[in-house]
Nucleic acid binder design. Sequence first.
DNA 1: TTGTATGCGTTATCAT
DNA 2: ATGATAACGCATACAA
Lengths: 337, 337
Amino acid sequence: MVKSVSVLDVAREAGVAAGSVSRALNGSKHVSPALRARVTEAARRLGYQPNAQARGLRLGRSNIIGMLVNDMRHPMYASIIAGVEHELSLQGRMLLLADAHGEAAREQAIFDTFQRCALDGAIIGASYHPDVMQAAHYAGNRLPLVLIDRDVEGMDRVCLERRNALRVATRHLLNLGHRRIALITPALDRVPGGERIAGYDDAYRQAGLPAERRYIPRMNSPLQDGGEAMATLLDLPEPPTALVCLGTRLLSGALRTVRKRGMQVPRDLSVVSIGSTDMMEFANPPLTCLRVDLMSTGRAAARLMLRRLEDPVGFVAERIELESELVVGESCGPPPA
Amino acid sequence: MVKSVSVLDVAREAGVAAGSVSRALNGSKHVSPALRARVTEAARRLGYQPNAQARGLRLGRSNIIGMLVNDMRHPMYASIIAGVEHELSLQGRMLLLADAHGEAAREQAIFDTFQRCALDGAIIGASYHPDVMQAAHYAGNRLPLVLIDRDVEGMDRVCLERRNALRVATRHLLNLGHRRIALITPALDRVPGGERIAGYDDAYRQAGLPAERRYIPRMNSPLQDGGEAMATLLDLPEPPTALVCLGTRLLSGALRTVRKRGMQVPRDLSVVSIGSTDMMEFANPPLTCLRVDLMSTGRAAARLMLRRLEDPVGFVAERIELESELVVGESCGPPPA
DNA sequence: TTGTATGCGTTATCAT
DNA sequence: ATGATAACGCATACAA
């Protein structure tokens, strides 16, 4: 482990003062071309790389943005993270990534670490924990924050539209003639689940049909296997003829149950997936799904952060909303006779 | 943006010297319980968070590990990253993540940035570019490196076993009676593809059968759609009766072609996927696949890094190899009559 | 235009 | 056991 080269080494090599090295390399206007050339050359020869820690300490910023997520293996997060990273790289910034695995304590710990690391800002991917969000809001005074998928008034945020998306999906099935439509989604008691149900209800109401509640089982986590819930639904005296389901393990489990019972999609059951991944192309038949551009979501968050950093106070809190699109596959048809 | 509290603020609050604050908070042995209590309390009152940049500058380390990947949206990377992050968090370290998107120039740029950021080390996820690897090797003198899935002698690395895995998969199909087995994998001219072909050959040879080459089309990227390649294979005078294929877009495309032609798995074609993801459960029928524990891969890399950091020179370069397991689904059967 | 000196927040060394 | 002080590497205000 060799000692790394510093400004002083470059200064000595170029026969100038340390300060001049800094000015020359950072493109100050008050340096003669000759000096700049000498310094640049010397830096190149020595392979000089400015120490980001020292620079950050002096400048009061790090060019690093933190990101907190709750399960990066979830394809939804993976794409959002990729979008954030891509946009940040365009800005010359880097991404510090931390995963809370849905634990409030870890969210808090990560947040403390973010504070210490002197990050320029942090992008919070869907904190599950309102109390941590409160702390975040408070800490917002020191650390610029952009929220993803949490609609907190007065904070910069990128939100995913769900209500209208579910309305469109449900209407799609109603139009095909379905009347008994199951909805499998977690977080019924929080915003995401609630919004989905609201959209589901909208569709029924707008079709002049009475609200339907029998086909919305209570789910805990998107990582849960949906097989059992599906079995319970299919055992009802009037089983559903269609299913709208979050496109995670919930859905793969539900489809497994369907298959086990010898039922076929869409002959015996029509299916719409909430969310889409590349992998969903494996499904046979290809699934009709609600698609949202997750890379763009991440990019939007990073751009919001950029604006906030460029104008920490003047820029009023912005809310960006991303909509879903119904991509028609081959998993929906008329209800069985 | 309020000025943050520093050691001096805490020192003043507790009525002690700055150095004592540092000692008390970092658990030095030479502090009286009384002083430690006063300092701890003062720090708590002021909400003191040590500045990681200053600390890093002074200590010569950052507690941050960089990770370079080539496409974090790829589920394979997503899991590896999750494993790395998880293990690092156990070590009290953080993860700086960068994506090169397979571009050599970006790999190099990221590497330079890593150097500047005074990272404690970097985990390189499958650099595609040998020349960058050379530079990495050279730079290894300053920045501890752990490679994932690149078997460079003399460097710490976590490798994925492929040859025996493909041998097992191919043998599985040979045992079922298949003789015309297609293999779709990218990187035929690099190690991963080459190893896979070697394993494929091993199986044929050990079965006393002549080597088969007609069913190995040339692929460029794992992100490519495998539909066309599959179509070409099926148009052969003696089309394959089984397929071993990398479980990415290559496979979803291939399966789409199979479906389009009205063929059924496994009745008309047996299928083994190289690699497994949660999403693959969507496949109907569930696919037989070669599974490797990718979270463990990431964790192993992070632990290797830990050992290297704890003993930068004494610890001789280690090579860890992770094996795949054949998970039998319902996508393989005897060849069609 | 260029050199000099100071401070960013921390920890370690050297006194006491 | 505790206090004072220097140094980590850089950028900037000020002096020349």
